[in-house]
Write a protein that binds this DNA or RNA. Structure first.
Lengths: 143, 143
DNA sequence: CTACATGCAAATAATTTGCATTAGC
DNA sequence: GCTAATGCAAATTATTTGCATGTAG
């Protein structure tokens, strides 16, 4: 269905569903989890499709724009993305030791944030909560 | 006092409190709010001190390392910092329209996050919560 | 004196962009 | 055919780094 959504989006903007764009789209949705543009590029090459790095970046922007993909965070290196369609909103814990990303969701947290926005007369549209620390595994490994 | 803290920190690491480092330090603490490295560099020049961009970056890393300064967020452009000493922990709302950064703090929010970490056997050390949307001012300006 | 710091300019690295070529419709 | 999209390589931009020179203790 993400295919349909993307094609609709392109149609409305007068853009064309080229094979490169479709290749990026299906690769993004071919796996779960988080990824960097370069990783995606390599997967696409590996899958037999061809799309230049430039097209990967360009298409990624389009996918973000139409809401199918979301920028998760920015690291020292660059951006990390995840596909969004079929996934409900969640936040992340990132392990400083092994880099593992744990997703979580808390209704209470969402409500509390709405309250806080209201208190500040702020119209919140999105948020990013990133908790850093050590995951269970790395926690025990530590000194 | 941040002066003392920094000097101690340098001393312990066998580093020297050069005039450039001190210039960066005092400029960082000469104003409140958030800043980019380039803005800091210009302020320092303007204040009559001289420190190259390289030294600003190098010193900023030291300040973060010793906890006097904190990286607030990463934008498309680069990093944004704020000084930390004398400021308690808080989170940010960022207006997508005018870029204003509003600070807030919620005890409930902190507690809730601790709970969530515990549920996931995660040892949280820091977190960053960034709520994006429109501030009061830009909200009314909108369609 | 002697490390460590500095400034400069060159190096990095992710991302973007200009442009000639190719391809949807 | 016309407009938009691609690939490439060059450009951008924040940040880092190598190195010869300066300086704190």
């Amino acid at each position: 269905m993400e295919n349909k959504i993307f094609r609709n989006f392109l149609g409305e903007k007068g853009l064309k569903p080229t094979k490169e764009r479709i290749a990026v789209l299906s690769e993004v949705f071919s796996f779960h989890g988080h990824f960097e543009p370069e990783y995606l590029y390599l997967r696409i090459k590996n899958a037999g499709s061809k799309a230049s790095r430039a097209s990967v970046y360009r298409t990624l922007s389009l996918l973000v724009e139409c809401g199918l993909v979301k920028k998760v965070t920015r690291t020292e290196k660059g951006n990390i993305y995840e596909h969004t369609y079929g996934h409900s909103h969640h936040d992340h814990m990132i392990c400083d030791a092994c880099g593992e990303i744990i997703e979580f969701y808390s209704e209470k947290l969402e409500n509390l944030q709405d309250e806080i926005c209201a208190e500040n007369s702020f119209a919140g549209s999105t948020h990013t909560l990133e908790i850093r620390g050590h995951c269970k595994k790395c926690r025990t490994k530590q000194s």
